[in-house]
């Protein structure tokens, strides 16, 4: 019967869409994949100890503790996470990239590369099609089977998912080694360390309080608590995160923000050129007029993931936060 056929067809479609939408939803949740603290093993203090010049082969242990050995430094790579793309470009190895994850957006050149689905939707076929020697991905979404499929196709899979600044150093070192850019990596790490040390020495947040806003009020306030880069950098600058009692990212209540009365507000909302800017929007919230940060206009808008991504730009983000606090004083 006709009707039955239609129902069957619709059912089949619905199943497909269900699977699809289930995946897509999770991937887009405001909890950024790199910040889910519980899901990853502690970042290993793994610094590459091999590196004999006669032997061109390189070997690292990735963040799942798996050993990855290449005969020679990789020349065709795909990076799925935005942070890995940034590290690769920072090492001057952007030309080695033959593909990127869909959410990689910095530096702007990266957008010219072929994009592949990442996270829960990771598309193995697309990746194999690009014939990379090495694939950098985060530990979040991939199953054993997926990485096995890739390895069967000759792609070396490197899991990389830094949870704190130390972890970022490790991942820079690891990537540098795999790409034969060890010197650049060491320099980059030293540079970051120097910047952080400098900030740590000059900064005196005087125990003032800061509130990090990840999602604007209209859709429920999300903040970054402990075990996030924002929190780590606030600590470094002598600031106190008002939501230190929250672990990772979470939706918090508006009343609590007002009650905890932060001295500074950092929002990472994007601005799209219409309506009030994120700062103006916060300034205009009813009931927030008595919050110290609002009263003093001490609100910083970081629009480019400077403080939310395990990339070398964390140092820039920290600098921006430092400058902002100094100015606001």
């Amino acid at each position: 019967m006709n009707a039955k056929k239609i129902i069957a067809l619709i059912m089949a479609l619905a199943m497909l869409t269900f699977v699809f939408c289930g995946c897509a939803k999770k991937d887009n949740a405001p909890v950024s994949s790199s910040d889910l603290a519980e899901q990853t093993p502690p970042a290993e203090e793994q610094t590459p100890d091999e590196g004999e010049p006669a032997d061109t082969s390189v070997s690292v242990i990735d963040m799942l503790g798996r050993e990855v050995t290449l005969d020679e430094p990789a020349s065709r790579i795909v990076a799925l996470t935005a942070a890995d793309c940034e590290i690769i470009y920072a090492l001057g190895a952007g030309d080695l990239l033959v593909g990127r994850g869909a959410y990689c957006d910095y530096p702007p050149e990266v957008l010219e590369l072929p994009s592949v689905e990442s996270g829960y939707d990771t598309n193995i076929e697309q990746i194999i099609d690009l014939e990379p020697q090495v694939l950098f991905m985060s530990t979040m979404a991939q199953s054993e089977e997926q990485s096995k499929q890739l390895e069967d196709a000759g792609v070396h899979v490197v899991m990389n998912d830094a949870q704190n600044i130390e972890g970022v150093y490790s991942s820079i070192g690891m990537i540098g080694q795999l790409l034969g850019k060890q010197a650049e990596a060491d320099a980059l790490i030293a540079d970051m360390k120097a910047k952080f040390d400098d900030l740590k020495n000059k900064a005196d947040g005087e125990g003032k309080t800061v509130y990090f806003e990840v999602s604007p009020l209209q859709y429920g306030l999300w903040t970054a608590g402990t075990d996030t880069f924002m929190n780590e950098i606030a600590d470094m600058l002598g600031l106190v995160n008002i939501f230190a009692d929250v672990t990772g990212w979470g939706e918090v209540s508006e009343e609590q923000v007002i009650d905890r009365n932060p001295d500074y507000i950092v929002t990472i909302s994007m601005y799209f050129g219409e309506g009030p800017t994120p700062i103006e929007e916060i300034m205009s919230r009813p009931g927030w007029e008595n919050v110290t940060a609002v009263k003093n206009g001490a609100i910083l808008n970081l629009q480019n993931d400077e403080l939310s991504r395990p990339s070398p730009r964390l140092a820039e983000g920290a600098q921006m936060l430092y400058d902002f606090i100094n100015e606001a004083k």
Partner: peptide, 14 residues
């Protein structure tokens, strides 16, 4: 639009 929980679970904040 990052705020998928808003569209699937709702929120009366703000």
């Amino acid at each position: 639009i990052k705020h998928i929980t808003f569209w699937t679970m709702g929120s009366l904040q703000g």
